[in-house]
Simulated scan of single mutants.
Amino acid sequence: MAALNDLLKKFYDIAANPDKQLKSYLEDGKKVVACAPIYTPEEIIHSMGLIPMGVWGADVEIKEAKKYFPAFICSIMQSVLELGITGVYEGVSAIVIPSLCDSLKCLGQNWKYAVKDIPFIPMTYPQNRANEVGKKFTKAGYERAIKELEVATGAVFSEEALQKSIEIYNAHNVAMRKVSDLLIHYPQITASQRSDIFKSAYFIEKEEHTKLLDELMNILQETSQVENKKIKVITSGILDDNKNLLKILDDNNIQIVGDDIANESRQYRIDAKPAVSSLDALSEKFSKMDNCSVLYDVDKKRANYIVDLVKHTGAQGVIIFMTKFCDPEEFDYVIVKKALDSAKIPSIMIEVDRQMVNYEQAKTIIQTFKEMIG
């Protein structure tokens, strides 16, 4: 048990202290590239000898970013810009921002004017991504991003290095999926600890995180399983790393047994397969990504995906963390809710943002949900 607690503390320390990780990499003479949500091509950045570091904002008061954004826009984007303006990302060599939603497009354009000392590199993806034209467009976007990364950092791209990085990232994807499935059987791992495992992946190199995941799986497999008396749920949304909200789940004896969260499991569903070139492999990978609110899908298969995830994990219900002013998630919610109701799966929706300070309403909703399905 001591070994498990020590390892969980490592995940927590990494997840809670990205500034410490950044400082450590910079002191070692390494160059760091910030990776904004949601599908930044980290494999490319990693292959160039750079450190990809996720930036999903933080729970901070928005002051300077208000000069660039209206109040009714995703708080993740606002807080990313706020941290950039206030110097939290000082030392970062560049930031790569995909353009998969309107808010991300605004973040990129505002970043150019608000944070002039950190170059903005756009990653433009096609929404019609599965056909040959879409794949060529994606590949062209990768090629342009590579050129801009070389200019911003002085690093050099190579096909061989990218192939190796793809193998590293594929291995990490597999480990993350295995851990997610394994945690179903270990209710002693709290919702907050599960969040640390996923969140920490954004702040250290993937090969190092994979080692921690392997160690975690080994320890868990040697740990006696306990009787599961918790209420099992699936979470869905863009982000659910708020410690106050996660504590409410833990206080109410609720276990997260799987997720459809953008900064958690959505990142690890698809591996890159061998192709003509490594960039072709990455383009093919993106073409196969699906079941996400920011990825175009006329059939909205994500709704049935969540229903199937509930059945696969044995969950008793779904908690949807709705990021305030996130249009893609709000559009999907009606369809997801309809599918859950049709399958007779209980669900609740809790609106969240990076400036959330009052949790009483969320606490009441979760307690009522617990009583409804407990």
Rank of each mutant, 00 (worst) to 15 (best):
L107Y: 04
I166E: 09
A152R: 02
P187A: 04
T223I: 09
T368W: 07
S283W: 01
E61T: 12
A161T: 09
M1C: 12
C35K: 00
E205Y: 11
K300Y: 15
L182E: 15
V88G: 09
P328Y: 03
K338G: 05
E215Y: 05
V276N: 11
K243M: 12
V233C: 01
V174P: 00
V92Q: 02
K247Y: 03
R129C: 08
M176E: 11
K199G: 08
L309P: 06
F325S: 04
D290T: 14
V298T: 12
D290N: 15
V307Y: 04
I219R: 05
G374S: 13
A58N: 10
P18I: 01
E371Q: 04
K211C: 10
E150C: 02
F369M: 11
I97P: 03
D259T: 08
D28M: 11
A58Q: 10
Y12P: 00
R266L: 14
N291P: 09
P119W: 07
Q367A: 13
G317M: 00
N131P: 01
A3D: 15
Y25N: 05
I14A: 03
L8S: 08
I256D: 07
I51F: 11
N244A: 07
M53R: 04
N252L: 12
I51K: 01
N173W: 02
G29I: 00
I197C: 06
A71W: 06
I189W: 02
S75C: 00
D297F: 02
I189H: 03
G57M: 09
D181I: 07
P37F: 12
S195F: 12
D271V: 06
W111S: 05
D259L: 01
P126Y: 04
E90D: 15
Q267K: 15
I261K: 00
E329W: 02
V92C: 02
D196F: 09
L4M: 14
A2Y: 14
Q78S: 05
V55K: 03
S192I: 14
V55T: 06
Y296L: 11
S180Y: 10
C74N: 01
N253M: 07
K31S: 09
N263W: 12
I85P: 04
M123F: 15
E167H: 01
Y12C: 13
N244E: 15
Y305Q: 10
A191T: 04
A161G: 07
V174F: 05
D308V: 07
V115S: 09
H209N: 12
R354H: 12
Q225Y: 10
I44S: 00
L220W: 03
R129N: 11
V233F: 04
Q163V: 13
E222R: 03
V174H: 04
I204A: 07
K324R: 11
I85L: 09
Q267M: 15
L340F: 01
S75A: 00
F157R: 07
P98S: 10
N263G: 11
T313G: 13
G29R: 01
